[in-house]
C-alpha cells in the first residue's frame, strides 16, 4: 500500500524535464526557536535562497542550517533519521498541518515532502509537535518517549524463545493478516497527536492494539493489553479522542479510524470480562 504511494511520488518527481526545470526558490521561513525545555520559545524569521524544487523539506532546512553555522549562529534542531519515510523520526508542523499534509496533497512524512510543493516567495511556518506529553527538547525536536511507554505497557506478545516455530503451524486468515499489517505500518511519528485538536494519541494506541489484537499470537494478552495501553496514554497526559479524524488524515501511513473503533470495542469487552489496568 505504502509502496504504491511512494512510487507515485517518485513518478511525478522524475517527470520534470530539464528544459522545463523550474527556477530555484527564495523562501521566508518562520521557525519556532526554543533554547531548551525551560525556555519560553518564539517564532524567528529567516530567508533561504536558491532552494531547488527537487530538495526535500529537510534538505531545505539543511541549507538554512549550513548558512546559520557559517554565520556563527545556532543551527535549528530538528529530528530526522532515515529520510526515506519509514523510521518515524522526523515530524514538523508545516503551515499548520502535521508533516505539511495540507501542502503535500497526500499522506507523507516531513522528509518525503518535496519543495516542488511550494512556490517561490512563499512564507512557511514551521513548529514542533505540541502536546504536554511531547515536551520540547530544543527548537523543533520533541521528546516522544511517551509513545514508547505506551508500547511498554502492553504492545508486546509473550512467546517462548528458542528455534523459530514452523511458520504454518498457526494459520491466520488473509483478511485478518491484511488488517493487522495495515495497522502495523504505524511508524510512531506522533503526527496523529500533533494534528489532533485534543492532542490525543488514540490513533497510535489503536494501531498497536489492532496490530497485535487481530493476530492469533496476540490473543492471550488481548484484554490486559488494551486496558493497560489506554490507561498509560491517559497517564502520559494525552487528550481524549472525540473522533474528529484529523489524526487519520495526517497519518503518513494512512492508518484508518476503524482501528479506534476496534480499540473501543476491545476495551469495552475487556472491561466486561473483568480486566483492569495495572496501577
Amino acid at each position: 500500500m505504502t509502496a504504491t504511494r511512494e512510487g507515485a511520488t517518485f513518478a511525478s518527481g522524475t517527470a520534470t524535464d530539464p528544459a522545463m526545470a523550474p527556477h530555484n526558490m527564495t523562501l521566508t521561513l518562520r521557525i519556532w526557536r526554543q533554547r531548551g525545555p525551560a525556555d519560553k520559545g518564539r517564532m524567528v524569521t529567516y530567508q533561504v535562497e536558491d532552494i531547488s524544487p527537487d530538495m526535500s523539506f529537510l534538505e531545505m532546512l539543511d541549507v538554512l542550517n549550513e548558512k546559520l553555522i557559517l554565520a556563527g549562529d545556532d543551527p535549528v534542531v530538528f529530528d530526522h533519521d532515515c529520510r526515506e519515510g519509514i523510521c518515524g523520526s522526523c515530524g514538523l508542523m508545516i503551515n499548520g498541518t502535521a508533516h505539511g499534509r495540507g501542502t503535500s496533497g497526500g499522506p507523507t512524512t516531513t522528509c518525503q515532502l518535496h519543495m516542488r510543493k511550494f512556490k517561490d516567495g512563499d512564507t512557511i511556518d514551521i513548529e514542533p509537535w505540541r502536546a504536554t506529553a511531547f515536551p520540547v527538547i530544543k527548537d523543533l525536536s520533541v521528546d516522544r518517549s511517551a509513545l514508547d511507554r505506551i508500547i511498554q505497557s502492553g504492545g508486546y506478545i509473550s512467546a517462548p524463545t528458542g528455534t523459530a516455530p514452523e511458520a504454518h503451524s498457526i494459520l491466520v486468515p488473509k483478511k485478518d493478516s491484511d488488517a493487522a499489517f495495515d495497522a502495523a505500518t504505524c511508524i510512531g511519528c506522533g503526527a496523529c497527536v500533533a494534528a489532533c485538536p485534543n492532542a490525543s494519541s488514540m490513533l497510535f494506541t489503536a494501531a498497536k492494539v489492532s496490530h497485535l489484537g487481530l493476530l492469533p499470537q496476540g490473543q492471550p494478552e488481548r484484554n490486559e493489553r488494551v486496558v493497560n495501553m489506554v490507561a498509560q496514554q491517559d497517564r502520559e497526559g494525552f487528550g481524549g479522542c472525540t473522533n474528529i479524524g484529523e489524526c487519520s488524515a495526517a497519518c503518513p501511513k494512512g492508518i484508518s479510524m476503524e482501528n479506534i473503533s476496534r480499540l473501543n470495542h476491545d476495551l469495552l469487552g475487556a472491561l466486561r470480562a473483568g480486566a483492569r489496568p495495572k496501577s
Binding site: R30, W32, M43, M93, N95, G96, T97, R101, G102, D125, E127, R130, A131, T132, A133, A195, P197, N198, A199, S200, G237, F238, G239, G240, T242, I244, G245, E246, S248, A249, A250
Partner: peptide, 19 residues
Amino acid sequence: RQAKRARPNGYVTKKAVAQ
C-alpha cells in the same frame, strides 16, 4: 479540560485537514 491540559500552548499556525 483534558484536551486543554494536553495542549496548554497551541500552535501559532494550525489548519484543519479533515475535520
